[in-house]
């Protein structure tokens, strides 16, 4: 456990080096946040939606921009899959740790490095905007705590899914296309395109059976009070279950992949 923590810290420090890219990233995030604010402002000027209020949507938009790097599903580490394909993964197997968790930590630390660099300036900016576009404070202290817990658990779910994509691409010998297909669908179901409550009813029902909405959507809504405290606590249990399922499934598939490599002789 200690080794993993140390590794997490090292990777985090490496990630924090890329400041210039981060500054550009912040600008991009601010722009998109503002763009979505204007868009929703336009829609809410026509009508209101019971499922989520204008204020809650604005808060949702800014939180999403602040935590964008954390919740975005994409192939981040082509190196992993390259190692499995080329067989050099054998060296990794010699090391005294579990290869799945080692890579898990690596992906996780990158996400946190990016998020730490970007989120703070986005928060500062979003809190200072004119009231129509301003990020609200959390609805209560309890909601804030639950928000923090769920966003962290959500990051475990994202990385669990990312790991699965990486591992699946080993079997299909192709990674970019499939990954972006999963990322596109996952993106919609996790509220990246529009907040989940604004999706058609059919899709909302589908999201209930999938892990995607637990990545960011629920956390953002807990923060703004769109989801109540009781349901928030249930979310945590649901998240834990999904984390176990995703990691378990990932471990299983990775072992299969590694066996295949060993049989081929690398």
């Amino acid at each position: 456990m200690r080794g993993y923590l140390k590794y997490f810290k090292t990777e985090l420090m490496v990630g924090l080096q890329y400041k210039a890219a981060a500054i550009a990233g912040i600008c991009t995030q601010l722009f998109w946040g503002f763009l979505f604010c204007l868009l929703y402002e336009a829609f809410y000027s026509y009508a209101n939606v019971d499922a989520i209020t204008y204020r809650e949507v604005i808060t949702y938009v800014w939180l999403m921009q602040a935590f964008f790097s954390l919740i975005y599903i994409k192939i981040e580490d082509a190196e992993i899959i390259g190692k499995i394909k080329s067989g050099t993964v054998a060296y990794e197997l010699c090391r005294p740790y579990n290869i799945y968790f080692w890579w898990f930590v690596r992906l996780l630390s990158r996400k946190y490095a990016h998020t730490l660099l970007k989120s703070f300036p986005v928060f500062v900016f979003a809190f200072m905007l004119p009231s129509a576009y301003r990020l609200s404070f959390p609805i209560s202290f309890e909601a804030l705590i639950l928000f923090i817990i769920t966003i962290i658990l959500g990051s475990f779910i994202v990385v669990g899914i990312s790991m699965l994509i990486h591992i699946i691409s080993f079997f299909t010998l192709e990674s970019k296309g499939i990954a972006s297909i999963i990322a596109s669908i996952g993106g919609v179901l996790s509220g990246m395109a529009v907040p989940v409550p604004l999706l058609p009813l059919v899709l909302i029902n589908i999201t209930k059976y999938l892990p995607f909405r637990l990545i960011g959507d629920t956390s953002f809504r807990i923060y703004s009070g769109n989801i109540g405290i009781i349901e928030a606590k249930q979310t945590i249990i649901l998240q834990l279950i999904w984390v176990v399922i995703l990691i378990g499934f990932g471990l299983l598939l990775l072992n299969k992949a590694l066996k295949k490599v060993c049989l081929q002789g690398g």
């Binding site: 829609f43 009508a47 499922a51 529009v194």
Partner: peptide, 19 residues
């Protein structure tokens, strides 16, 4: 697929807001 997802999001908003 990505394009159709965007289209779907556009459509979803218009239908949610009864527009």
């Amino acid at each position: 697929l990505y394009m159709f997802i965007e289209l779907f999001a556009v459509y979803a908003l218009f239908s949610k807001f009864n527009l």
